[in-house]
Nucleic acid binder design. Structure first.
Lengths: 192, 192
DNA sequence: ATTATAAAACTAATGTCATTAGTTTTTGGC
DNA sequence: GCCAAAAACTAATGACATTAGTTTTATAAT
């Protein structure tokens, strides 16, 4: 029984690598244990079963997203900020597909920590939409819109939903342009 | 051994109900068999294991989507057509969440039937974008954009991704307006 | 240094699920 | 009535998550 010196962060790190290379559904206690040279019941010393492991993945995922987005948004405003957010979103999802997937599962209503981590990310999206004259609830609605656009693209791209061999980066450029134009048109309307 | 008179369509129908009420991940051979008052190995007389069952769900799902969208698009054009497509998309996803989820899994490269069923749905999206002066590949890119927008919204809504208690239908209205304005702006630009 | 304790590993066992092999029964066509 | 194929079955295997109970090791207190 040579103690391996495993701790939660390195366990989650190993799980993250598994998720990003093999897909989230490949992250089982069995595969993770195998990878860590451990028997799977031993994982219960660090994590409360598979659901908890998934939650841990969501937590790191959200933290990393916040960090990534914050960095991308630094010193940006207006269209630059929106575009920066979009491209940061895309690049994160492409670089960390498994983590991205882990983040999608909704938090339990009583899981305030996970909820807060999600809110932090959403707040960054809110920041990127400053300066378009959106009032009150409009901001929230518009954040939902841009989240929809970005998540939809990322999700379809990753699932192979776009069958035709036509450059996906071109599509993403058009997507951003279309959204920005729409956003500005809404701004104009709101001013009337 | 009282023969139950099961056939593929009714089996898929039962699976559909399970998926729509309990979620796609609740559709296992075990639960389906239980529901049909059968032992699970007996399902192999009708379906080639769980992957094939999922494929059957995707096939019916896509067929029903095509039907639903075609009906919604009848006699519509311009903004009406785009809006009709959007609302049909949303209403389908809300009415058949399990089926919608089943449809998302990508087709194997050699699965021409499933691929065609997907293309049929995409073609309806293409139709709805007629009359915006999009040229060549622009149509395909823009279809990807609207699919992203709609899938993203539906997916986030279903996963409970929108935490704040603010009316989702309001968001969806704004989403459509924003997309339509963006679409028209792109149209204008393309004319120059 | 010694020892007590808690953490971290382990083995063994259970239950669920998908899947395969091989068996029985029914039914529809002759 | 008969027979072949379809549709059900039982039995068994292997993957997985999880629980219970055991052993070892590290560390902190004496």
């Amino acid at each position: 029984m040579p103690r391996i010196g495993l701790d939660l962060p390195s366990l989650v790190h190993a799980a993250t690598e598994l998720a990003d290379t093999q897909g989230l559904e490949a992250v089982t206690l069995a595969t993770l244990a195998q990878r860590l040279q451990i028997r799977s019941p031993s994982l219960y010393n660090h994590v409360n079963g598979l659901p908890d492991l998934r939650r841990q993945l969501a937590l790191t995922g959200l933290a990393q997203m916040s960090e990534h987005f914050r960095h991308a948004l630094a010193d940006k405003s207006g269209d630059d900020a929106v575009r920066a957010f979009s491209y940061a979103y895309l690049s994160f999802a492409r670089a960390h597909p498994g983590l991205y997937e882990a983040v999608q599962r909704a938090a339990e209503p009583d899981d305030l920590l996970l909820q807060q981590a999600g809110n932090d990310v959403v707040q960054l999206a809110v920041n990127s939409l400053e300066g378009y004259g959106l009032r009150g609830d409009e901001v929230i609605h518009m954040v939902r819109v841009i989240r929809s656009v970005l998540h939809g693209f990322v999700s379809l791209e990753r699932q192979g939903g776009f069958g035709i061999p036509l450059d996906l980066d071109d599509t993403f450029r058009l997507l951003n342009q279309t959204f920005l134009e729409g956003l500005k048109a809404m701004q104009t309307k709101a001013r009337e």
